[in-house]
Design a protein around this nucleic acid. Sequence first.
DNA 1: GATGCGATTCACT
DNA 2: GTGAATCGCATCG
Length: 218
Amino acid sequence: MAGVGGPTGGAPLTAGGAAVDLATLLAGPVVPAARGLLGCVITAGGVRVRLTEVEAYGGVGADEASHAHRGETARNRVMFGPPGRLYVYFTYGLHWCLNVVCGPAGTASAVLLRAGEVVDGLELARRRRPAARVDRDLARGPARLAQVLGLDGTANGADLLDPSGPVRLAPPAQAPDPARVRSGPRVGVAGAEDRPWRFWLDGEPTVSPYRRRVRRHR
DNA sequence: GATGCGATTCACT
DNA sequence: GTGAATCGCATCG
């Protein structure tokens, strides 16, 4: 059933039974986009990572946990742009996190890339993350994923579908078994715990452990 | 203009 | 399990 007759030049992938290309998937609603991103391969800085865990974030007024919730700012501007772009933000004074912008321009939804498996450039990856004692920890966590790819704020706004860009996204060679896709509450997010917008591939060792938001001392 | 805390990670107890 | 590191943004006065 899969992989027959990709109509356009884009490589086909299977999502919910229909063959669509990546650009089409990312232009649509964020939740199916997040699911479809599982198994995709992101390439940057000589390292390739297969995504095993992602989280969906909604737009203005739709998702209290989203950076875009309160409207457009200098930081989140990329989220309001066209889909398929990379939104990079800096947090805790030392970490970078990667997101894929979804939906048509103006919707400001995005998918946070939380974890993945390094499938190429292993030695480079190890050198960038000396703290990782085992390979499965190389990209196990959003900031680790960014670090292993050698990405920071300078990559903000990059077009992931541009083959000549610094960061590229490609559909999986083989779509993951839909039965292996699990969902649950997002990590480190206060409120909206009822929204199971975290998606991961069951059984993958690179999926990060779930941690509820830490209560903060004041 | 000042202040508090974050879509986190690492080291230590 | 707890705390520190450390910068920018959002919020408040």
